[in-house]
Each structure stands twice: as structure tokens, then as C-alpha cells.
Design a protein around this nucleic acid. Structure first.
Lengths: 343, 343
DNA sequence: AATATTGCCGGTAACGATACCGGAAACGTT
DNA sequence: AACGTTTCCGGTATCGTTACCGGCAATATT
């Protein structure tokens, strides 16, 4: 039923040439008379010829497509994906994105699915539920190239592009200390996740540097989730060891914490300070506006894309690059009590 | 270099059978001895055989993939895409998403690109910049099936799934009227976009029903954009005809308006009411929380997916279905001045 | 017993493209 | 004149899969 798109065969028949000749002309290969070539290109243009990518991929065993596997598409990750997109576009690659929805099962299914000759390799950020690497080990065994970013996979050999999460935890905590907060709690993420632990490490490091005793009752592990953060904060605030500042390792959690703080009627930043992580745009709109650790998401994605493509084209995935980018603290009202509050 | 995945040929050789027989076994076709079939399936399982989708698609001229073209991936649209995803998954289809970033050029490029035998058809929501249909007319000419959703394409014949935007504008406006607001302004979107106009129509309809005179100085056309809304609201508030309520046709715009209102020092909802559109989750967190028109985004996406697949499988795209779903008003603090403000 | 019907299997062409090889004609070289 | 070189083109195999046809037994039908 479809009005089928033209193929090189159509062109060949119309010009009374062989498909080989047409193919050479369109590929800019040699062995061809300039005149012949010109007429072929002309006709191809007229017919609006586009090569069939399926046939090409099948023949060349290469799809020029990158599979991107992410746990979700929140603000940070979707920005990273845009970065990957840009790198891919520049190199003539296509990107297919699959959300695992933080589910291990879907991560496996999606990987398998894309593996059926649809992609040349993967760029991966694991789901928070993912504890095993088995399904990625398959990639290694079959020598399918991949690069990891954002959330890396422990014990898995591959190039990686990540944030210096420890540094992020450190600058946030040190900032709170410098603002005179004494009892700083941290809402850390799930213990299974590397980024959680790194940010927690940074927190510890800052405390140590400023001779503040580490108190594990001020450390709450909870899901990357506004609600959990809300309840965790409520509990913290009514405990004996009520903190005078909270550092949350995501902005969603910061918002949950802020709601709990407001409900309790505490003044921010006077009575309690707050710093989040990711610097989502809406943070500036809250009142008080919320300080946060910003990460160069777009760059992380773009770099991951570039590294993948570079290694793919050179067919060299044995040299593992490890890029670590630095975060930046964006200071807003929620954590500044030394100076007068701005407008 | 790749440890190449097994093919039916490998299976055939190992069992001393022909590829035809193996193919039949795996496809559950007839003409096969149960014993033979069993051994083939067993070996396929052991080798973790997965059919090569490229070859399949090339052979069958069908990819089981749907191209989804969207202007961006904001909250509403990404929810819709999740709906499409679910419908596709249930039917064994794969989804490829391309953001046009509200750019006409990228929309065209992406469409062309996916058209090169990568997708069976499209599910489309146009970019706000898109004025011409030319690149989609190509689809019609080549009889490539597509379904439109959310933002429809005027004068283009296809099934569609959309929100009753007029109704949305109507219930938001009527709500404000019932709350006693008299001079209600509207921040409408770009005039080129159908959904803007429909919501504006609803607004007019509500005014008319309640015998309020329509005043076009209270209608501001501006981009779907927080900043534009901010400046537009500032202007509105300092004009002679200062409104006592504002209806914005997106939540982003509502947030912009709210910032301008706060800056001006007006009390909400007492001195000025506000209703947004889309019901993004963060609205509940602002103070005051913001009322908004909710749309069944997930259902819209899922329906669009289902309709596409159904029509595709029946090979019937001549009967154009038109589904229109109803919005729902979510009332929060920003627009309620009759009763006492909640906690 | 001759024929028709099944059950089961293999061979081959095709989907659209590229890679490799071989060959005819035109030219240049001794 | 005989040979080697270019230039330009066509034929064929191939990627992994399915569709179609044909064929050979074994069984069923008359």
C-alpha cells in the first residue's frame, strides 16, 4: 500500500546502469565517470532518494545508533541526555533513549531489546534499584562498547564521565559550616548508590576539616523522593538532636525537607539552613529560595557522547578514560544568615 | 572483533538442518516435526538466540517502531510519552522519541531521518514554531500512517487525541468568576498555536455566560515561558486596568505571574487570584499553592498509542478517529477567597 | 495396486545496500 | 605489434530473515 521510497535499483533501471555503479556514485567512491556520476546524483536528488538505513546497517553490521539507558528523565538526567544528543548529532549518530523507571527488570528488558542489532553500543546510567551487574557483564563478554555516566557501575570496566560528588558534598557542607550552622544533618540517598556515598563522604570530610564531630544520628538514608524526605525531616526536627541545618543530596529531597520545616514553623534560614543538590530551576522561585550544588549536566552528557563516539570510531575500548567534573555551589536565601536577606 | 550473536544459520548448522526449518520452528509456523521443533527451541534457548531485528524489518518492510515527535519534554509531554510507551510495550512496539526543541528545522530533519526505514509511522505533537504542514504532507503523500496528539495540525487528515482545551479555559475562568473576581486577565500563549486559541475561547465563553464584558486589553499573548509571563504580568499590574485575577494557560506562566505578583506585594488570593494549566506537581508546594487545570496526560498518550497501533494493524488510516478528553480543575489556595485559607 | 493426501524438510529468491572481483575498452609504453 | 595500465562498469556474494515452491517419504484413499 505504501508508495515505496526509491532505491538504488530504481535509479539504476531508469539510467540503464547497474546498481553497483549507482552505489559507487552515491557513496563518492572511485571508478566512475564524472558524467555518469553527475546524472546519477541528479536523478537521486529528483527522486528524493534516501538510503535505506536498515539495509545499510544489516550489511555493514553497524547502526550508527547509540542506546542510552537512564533510570528516569528528571531535570538533571534529561539535561545530560540533551548533551549526549548534541554530541551524537554532530557525529551523525542517532540516539535511542530508554527509561528504566528505576526498575531493574525494565533495565534488563530494554537492554536486551536494543541489543538485537539496533544499537552499536550503550551510554548508561544505572537505576537505583540495580544491585547486580550481570546484564551489563553480558555486554563486556560480547564486547559491546559502552560508556557509563552520572551513576557509575562499580567493578565494571568502561570509560566514565561523572561528577565529583565528594567535592559536591564537601562544598555544600563547608558552606553551611561557614554560615555558622553547628549541627548539620544530611539526607543521604539510598545506601546502594555510589553517588549517595560519595556525597556523604564529602560531608564527613568537611566536618572533619572544621573539627566538628561526626554524629551518625544526623545521617538519614532515604529514597530519592520528596515524600520520604518530608517524613525523615519531620522526624529529625522533633528528635532530641534537632539539627540547625540540613544538606540533602537532591533538590526533590530539599523541597520535601522545606515543607516539613515550614510545617514545623521554623524560620529559614535563621533557625535552620538548607542546601540541596542539582540546582533545578524552580529552586529560585521558592521563598526562601533554596541553595543548591550545581552540576554541569549538559557537559557531562556531551562528554560521555563524545568519548563513546571517539572510542567507537577508533575501535578502542580498552583504554578507559575517566573524566570527573567539578560541581559549583549556588548560594541562595535558604542558607545565608550572616548578611541581610536579599529582596 | 565482536563475539557475534547467534543466527538461525548457526542453529541450523549445529543441528544439521536447513535454515528454513529452523525459521519455521522459531516462528511457530507449521510443517514441522514436534521433536525437531523441540530441539531447535532448546538450542535457541541455550544460545540465547534473539532474532536480528534489522533483517526482520528489512525483509518484512515493517519495523514495529513508532516515531514520536514532540516539541520538548516538559512535565505534561513526558507524561504523555510515558503513556505512548506503555501502549507500545503492550503491543510489542518500540518507541523512538525526538525532541524538536520547538524548532521547525529540527522537526523536519528528525522526521526525514526517521523516515529512512526506521519507523512504521509517527505520533506527533507539533512545535509551536511550526506554521507550515509541508513536511507532514509528505507523510500523507507517501501514505505513511500517523496520529497527532496534544497540539494538532490544522487541515491535516489524521486521527487525533486531544484535550478539550476550550472546556479547560472555561472551567478555570468560571471558577474565578464564582470566587468573586471581576476583572480576569488571561495570559494566552502564542497566537499561532491551536491550544492557545481554544483556551482563550473557553475564557470568552465563561465571561459571556456570566455577563462579564470581554476586554481585549486583559488578553496578553506571550510565549510559553516563565520570563515572558513575568514581564507581561508586571505590565498588567501597573496598568490602569489592573486585573484582580489572572488565568495563565500554562503552569510555567503561572509561576512567572506569581513572581511578579509577589514582587508587587499583592496578597494572593485576597487581592488577586491565579489559576494555571497542566497541574504540575510542584504547584502544590508553592505558597500559596496554585490552582490549575489538570489534563489526563498519560491517558492522552496511551490512547494515541493505542489508536496508532490499532489502525496500523488493521491497515486502516482512512477512518479518522477524533478523541477529545476532558480536563479537571484542581483548586488550591491561589484562587479561593471565599473560605478561610487552609494550613 | 494405483493414486491422492499428508507430514516434513530443503532450496532459492528476495528485502536494499556494499564489497570484491573480473572484464572490456581506451590509452600509454616499449 | 605486443604488452601493461587506467578508466569505467557489471556480476555476484553477502548481511539475517522469511515466503514460496518443490520434493520425498509415509500414510490414507479409492
Amino acid at each position: 500500500m505504501h508508495n515505496k521510497p526509491p532505491t538504488i535499483k530504481d535509479i539504476a533501471q531508469r539510467l540503464h546502469l547497474s546498481i553497483s555503479t549507482v552505489s559507487r556514485a552515491l557513496r563518492n567512491a572511485g571508478d566512475i565517470n564524472p558524467e555518469t556520476k553527475k546524472s546519477i546524483l541528479q536523478l537521486a536528488e529528483d527522486l528524493n532518494y534516501q538510503p535505506n538505513r536498515l539495509a545499510l546497517s544489516l550489511r555493514q553490521n553497524q547502526t550508527n545508533t547509540i542506546g542510552v539507558i537512564v533510570p528516569n528523565l528528571d531535570y538533571v538526567i534529561s539535561t545530560m541526555v540533551k548533551g549526549i544528543d548534541e554530541a551524537a548529532l554532530e557525529a551523525g549518530f542517532t540516539v535511542i533513549v530508554c527509561q528504566s523507571n528505576e526498575s531493574f527488570g525494565r533495565e534488563v528488558v530494554n537492554t536486551r531489546r536494543m541489543l538485537n542489532s539496533l544499537v552499536d553500543g550503550f551510554i548508561i546510567s544505572i537505576s537505583s534499584e540495580t544491585k547486580s551487574n550481570e546484564h551489563f557483564k553480558v555486554l563486556s563478554e560480547r564486547e559491546i562498547p559502552f560508556v557509563v555516566f552520572d551513576r557509575v557501575i562499580p567493578d565494571l570496566l568502561a570509560s566514565s564521565v561523572i561528577l565529583d560528588n565528594e567535592e559536591g558534598g564537601f562544598i555544600a557542607t563547608e558552606h553551611l559550616i561557614e554560615q555558622g550552622y553547628k549541627k548539620i544533618a544530611i539526607l543521604a540517598g539510598p545506601q546502594t548508590l555510589g553517588i549517595s556515598n560519595s556525597r556523604l563522604e564529602g560531608y564527613k570530610k568537611a566536618l572533619k576539616k572544621h573539627d566538628i564531630k561526626y554524629d551518625d544520628e544526623l545521617v538519614i538514608y532515604c529514597d530519592f523522593n520528596q515524600e520520604f524526605a518530608f517524613y525523615a525531616t519531620e522526624e529529625l526536627l522533633s528528635s532530641k538532636k534537632r539539627p540547625d541545618a540540613i544538606f540533602t543530596i537532591s533538590d526533590r529531597m530539599a523541597i520535601g525537607a522545606m515543607l516539613a520545616i515550614k510545617k514545623k514553623g521554623l524560620k529559614m534560614p535563621e533557625e535552620i539552613g538548607l542546601v540541596g543538590f542539582n540546582n533545578e530551576p524552580s529552586l529560585a522561585l521558592f521563598s526562601p529560595s533554596i541553595s543548591s550544588v550545581e552540576q554541569p549536566s549538559f557537559e557531562i552528557g556531551k562528554l560521555a557522547g563524545k568519548i563513546f563516539i571517539e572510542q567507537f570510531l577508533n575501535n578502542d575500548f580498552s583504554n578507559h578514560k575517566e573524566v570527573i567534573l567539578k560541581p559549583k555551589l549556588v548560594i541562595r536565601e535558604s542558607s545565608v544568615r550572616m548578611t541581610r536577606k536579599g529582596n
